[in-house]
Amino acid sequence: MIIKTVIIAVAGVTAGGKTTTINELKKKMKGAKSLHFDDYDFEGEVDDFHQWVMDGADYNVWNLEPLKKDILEFTEDNEVQYILLDYPFAYKNDWIKPFIDFAIFIDTPLDIAMARRVLRDMCNATADEIREDMSFYLKYARIAYEEMLNTILPNSDYVIDGRMQLDEIVKQIMDIVKINYECKTKE
């Protein structure tokens, strides 16, 4: 019996736990490979997220052909049972939407995501640099985080509480995968 590769998109706000969760899932899932949105440079990539949201938040401005190509390559590999997409858009980009079997949104409160981002990305920053970043976030960037909560969260099949410990998030996703994988193997 040929078993279709199951493609799981994991979305969430920046520093919401997507990459950490994907990396942990990869360790636990036999035949899993991952693709990470942040590893690519895409044509049409947005520089000003505030303006992008103000202009209507068109998720198709990103030309995700390179990611699509890698997804197709993995689906042709008989050893790959699962593709884990560290991917912020759920079903909102037309290049990738047809490939996703289900989308999971890690719903991490914005204050926790912000604290994680500062700890991760600004460990060597001065107090003035951190204050400047916080000011920029409040004035321009927060709107993009809210866009994710207003558009991507309800566009996902499952929502996981991002306040939980990593092992509980992974357990819940593994349970979701098991249910969905059983459905895919019966198709």
Rank of each mutant, 00 (worst) to 15 (best):
residue 175 D to M: 00
residue 44 G to I: 07
residue 156 S to M: 08
residue 176 I to S: 01
residue 97 K to G: 08
residue 98 P to H: 08
residue 113 A to G: 06
residue 116 R to A: 13
residue 86 D to V: 10
residue 75 T to G: 00
residue 158 Y to N: 06
residue 30 K to H: 03
residue 117 R to G: 01
residue 97 K to H: 14
residue 24 E to D: 13
residue 111 D to N: 15
residue 84 L to S: 12
residue 3 I to H: 01
residue 49 F to I: 11
residue 166 L to I: 15
residue 75 T to E: 15
residue 47 D to L: 11
residue 129 E to Q: 15
residue 37 F to A: 04
residue 77 D to S: 11
residue 167 D to W: 12
residue 124 N to L: 07
residue 114 M to A: 14
residue 42 F to W: 12
residue 92 K to M: 15
residue 37 F to Q: 06
residue 83 I to Q: 09
residue 156 S to Q: 02
residue 133 D to R: 14
residue 8 I to M: 07
residue 9 A to K: 09
residue 138 L to Q: 02
residue 64 L to Y: 00
residue 47 D to A: 10
residue 162 G to W: 13
residue 157 D to G: 04
residue 185 T to G: 00
residue 23 N to E: 15
residue 115 A to M: 07
residue 72 L to S: 12
residue 170 V to W: 05
residue 45 E to D: 06
residue 122 M to R: 14
residue 43 E to N: 09
residue 101 D to K: 00
residue 157 D to S: 11
residue 139 K to S: 07
residue 87 Y to F: 15
residue 49 F to S: 09
residue 145 Y to I: 02
residue 6 V to F: 07
residue 12 G to Q: 01
residue 135 S to C: 06
residue 35 L to A: 11
residue 8 I to Y: 04
residue 22 I to M: 03
residue 95 W to R: 00
residue 56 G to R: 04
residue 135 S to Y: 11
residue 58 D to M: 03
residue 167 D to H: 10
residue 78 N to F: 08
residue 185 T to F: 03
residue 37 F to H: 12
residue 177 V to T: 10
residue 168 E to H: 13
residue 177 V to M: 02
residue 19 T to S: 15
residue 166 L to P: 11
residue 131 R to D: 13
residue 113 A to V: 03
residue 58 D to K: 01
residue 135 S to P: 00
residue 90 A to L: 06
residue 43 E to A: 09
residue 148 M to L: 10
residue 27 K to F: 04
residue 81 Q to S: 13
residue 4 K to E: 11
residue 142 R to N: 13
residue 124 N to C: 05
residue 123 C to G: 02
residue 50 H to F: 14
residue 139 K to M: 08
residue 32 A to G: 00
residue 32 A to Q: 05
residue 33 K to E: 15
residue 63 N to M: 04
residue 170 V to L: 04
residue 131 R to T: 09
residue 167 D to T: 07
residue 56 G to S: 06
residue 45 E to C: 03
residue 94 D to G: 05
residue 114 M to F: 14
residue 70 D to R: 11
residue 109 P to A: 10
residue 178 K to E: 03
residue 125 A to P: 01
residue 23 N to S: 10
residue 2 I to L: 14
residue 66 P to W: 00
residue 55 D to G: 08
residue 151 T to N: 14
residue 26 K to Q: 12
residue 14 T to Y: 01
residue 60 N to G: 02
residue 2 I to G: 13
residue 166 L to E: 06
residue 13 V to Q: 02
residue 13 V to R: 06
residue 70 D to P: 05
residue 76 E to I: 05
residue 56 G to E: 05
residue 105 F to M: 12
residue 177 V to L: 01
residue 146 E to N: 10
residue 149 L to Y: 12
residue 18 K to Y: 06
residue 30 K to A: 03
residue 98 P to Q: 03
residue 164 M to W: 12
residue 57 A to R: 10
residue 75 T to V: 15
residue 62 W to F: 14
residue 187 E to A: 05
residue 167 D to Q: 10
residue 11 A to M: 04
